[in-house]
């Protein structure tokens, strides 16, 4: 049986080394796609370290939000900005090794993590969440909405300012542009748009017997 604390320490150092190495790769790699992939690895390893520190919610949020959403967006942007068409086409094979390495390292990290979690190691001191008899997420939520309520609200305010400024900077009202006015569309009177014409269902066909042969004989 391995000493639990030693194993946890080894895991921590391994994750830390990978985090720092990947972060270095982000700023040193010339290929932007590689750099983004390295950034993914940085986030993932950081999440693993947080998991070791029993901050499950933060770790999962980091993976779901950053790795899952933001980084994929990054990758799209980087790939879209890449003007070199040839590079793009050969991308899959070229990026495959790096992608594979990132994936393998992540897998190993996850396995190690599951191992540590399964053995319920307690090397990081008393976790306030455990001490309170709550899950990490519940404890975090309680702290966020009681002791840290004011900072939480101000963070919301900062996001509001971000949205306001983003709209102010990008919205250009062009007078030549055509807009749909939903309110006008809804409140339109059908009579203004469609003219209903009364006409007989059956109309006697006028005899055209006299004209037909004349047309046919022309060519």
């Amino acid at each position: 049986m391995i000493n639990l604390q030693v194993f946890e320490l080894v895991c921590f150092y391994a994750f830390a080394v990978i985090t720092v190495g990947a972060a270095l790769a982000v700023i040193t790699l010339r290929n932007t796609v590689h750099a983004v992939l390295a950034l993914v690895l940085t986030f993932f390893s950081t999440a693993c370290i947080w998991m070791l520190a029993e901050a499950e919610f933060l770790a999962i949020a980091l993976i779901v939000v950053y790795v899952g959403a933001v980084m994929v967006l990054f990758l799209f942007v980087v790939m879209m900005l890449d003007i070199d068409q040839e590079k793009l086409r050969e991308g899959f094979v070229k990026f495959l090794p790096v992608g594979l390495i990132v994936a393998v390292v992540m897998l190993v990290e996850m396995l190690a993590l599951i191992g540590v979690r399964a053995m319920h190691a307690q090397a990081m001191g008393v976790n306030p969440a455990t001490a309170a008899g709550q899950s990490n997420t519940a404890w975090l939520g309680t702290a966020l909405y009681t002791n840290y309520l004011l900072p939480f609200e101000i963070a919301a305010l900062i996001l509001t300012v971000g949205v306001v400024v983003a709209v102010a900077l990008t919205l250009r009202q062009r007078h030549s542009a055509k807009y749909q006015m939903a309110s006008e569309q809804v409140s339109v009177n059908p009579r203004d748009r469609i003219r209903i014409v009364k006409m007989d269902a059956v109309r006697p066909v006028e005899p055209v017997v006299a004209a037909a042969p004349e047309q046919e004989s022309k060519p």
């Binding site: 900072p151 101000i154 305010l157 900062i158 300012v161 400024v165 102010a168 900077l169």
Partner: peptide, 25 residues
């Protein structure tokens, strides 16, 4: 009265300032 508040107050101020500088787009 807290480091978190210092950071958030500063961010609110500077983020608005960036926007104000860029407003003359």
């Amino acid at each position: 009265g807290n480091l978190v508040m210092i950071y958030l107050g500063l961010e609110l101020l500077t983020l608005s300032s960036y926007g104000l500088v860029a407003l003359n787009r």
